[in-house]
């Protein structure tokens, strides 16, 4: 194998995996031979290795030559990049928020005492969040790198809204009927996480207490609370269905606003009923008595947790009330305008 052949093989090794790779190598060899022949004619010298080296030096390193054939010199090209950024901006904050909430729940329920366990849980939780965010980032990059290489150029072009974009959309005030996609996506994720925890992992909602011999677990909610689960599930599912519908339709209508008012009213009614139901809370004097040698000031803790729970339910009622009022106001305003 002479120098030219070795050079062509080296270029071939560095070529991106594309059709006609052999063609490129064949054409390159033919070109180099032509150039050498030209030099022999022009200089009157005989072809030798020195002449080949001189030519190859001028032609450039095999890596550089191979790179000129790369149709995708980017990891993620300029056409997909805005879409990539959009996905990142949604996924990473939602993921970090959900994991922060879960870490907070674990830290609050597993260890009611400020001690090593608390530091451990929070430390591990934060470490987990960083690594989850990096993993998510890596996976998103991977998906886009693949999309960049498998999507035909025309399809990539469809991601940009250039053609459909209308300057009239730059209204002075945002259209109140347009749905906020980021809000909806966040709401779907949180509702889904809430559903999953309450139905599949209710055991993480509680307080763990360890003695030297045994671990004790006091659930946060009593059986009384879980009797409300079908109603809670129905409301959460209705919320998710409405959000998905809104994501698809991208616009609020009277029907969806009425549905939103009904769902929020149901949430408020259920929250009020739960708040007024006695013995809904798992942390009772009896449950603390099951823990031997407990140094826990049971009554004090019970009061703190009962109070926090009531506050949480009241916040739910206020938020649902605000959402309901917003939907009702928008409905009235639209109907008023039509008249």
């Amino acid at each position: 194998m002479n120098l030219i052949d070795r050079y062509v093989t080296e270029v071939g090794k560095n070529l991106p995996l594309l059709k006609g790779r052999e063609d490129i190598e064949k054409e390159l060899k033919s070109t180099l031979e032509d150039m050498l022949e030209d030099r022999v004619e022009q200089t009157g010298r005989l072809r030798d290795e020195a002449m080949e080296i001189e030519l190859l030096k001028e032609y450039g390193s095999p890596q550089k030559v191979a790179a000129t054939y790369n149709p995708h010199p980017y990891l993620i090209g300029p056409r997909l990049f805005p879409f990539f950024l959009m996905v990142l901006k949604i996924v990473i904050p939602v993921l970090v928020t959900v994991l922060l909430v879960l870490t907070g729940i674990r830290a609050a329920t597993d260890t009611p005492f400020m001690g090593m366990d608390f530091v451990n849980i929070v430390g591990k939780g934060l470490g987990g969040i960083v690594s989850a965010a990096i993993t998510a980032f890596g996976n998103i990059v991977l998906v886009f790198v693949i999309l960049e290489r498998v999507l035909p150029d025309k399809e990539i072009g469809d991601f940009s809204d250039e053609k459909d974009w209308d300057p009239a959309s730059l209204a002075k005030e945002p259209d109140p009927d347009t749905v906020k996609r980021s809000d909806l996506i966040a709401e779907i994720v949180f509702t889904f996480v809430g559903l999953a925890i309450l139905n599949l992992f209710p055991e993480i909602l509680g307080m763990s207490y360890f003695t030297e011999e045994k671990a004790f677990f006091i659930p946060m909610f009593s059986v009384e609370f879980f009797k409300f689960m079908p109603w809670i599930n129905a409301i959460f599912l209705a919320e998710i269905v409405l959000d998905i519908y809104l994501l698809r339709s991208a616009i609020w209508t009277s029907v969806t606003r009425i549905a939103k008012i009904i769902i929020e009213a149901a949430s408020i009614a259920l929250a009020v009923i739960i708040l007024r139901t006695p013995d809904i809370f798992g942390f009772t004097a009896e449950s603390f008595q099951s823990v031997p040698n407990s140094s826990v000031n049971a009554e004090m803790l019970m009061k703190i947790f009962n109070f926090s729970f009531s506050i949480a339910i009241i916040i739910v009622i206020i938020v649902a009330g605000v959402e309901m009022a917003k939907a009702a106001f928008a409905l009235l305003r639209v109907n008023y305008k039509r008249k």
């Binding site: 390159l28 032609y59 450039g60 030559v65 000129t68 054939y69 149709p71």
Partner: peptide, 10 residues
């Protein structure tokens, strides 16, 4: 050359 050959392919 590095411009011409890839251009011909494109």
């Amino acid at each position: 050359q590095g411009t011409l050959y890839p251009l011909l392919r494109r």
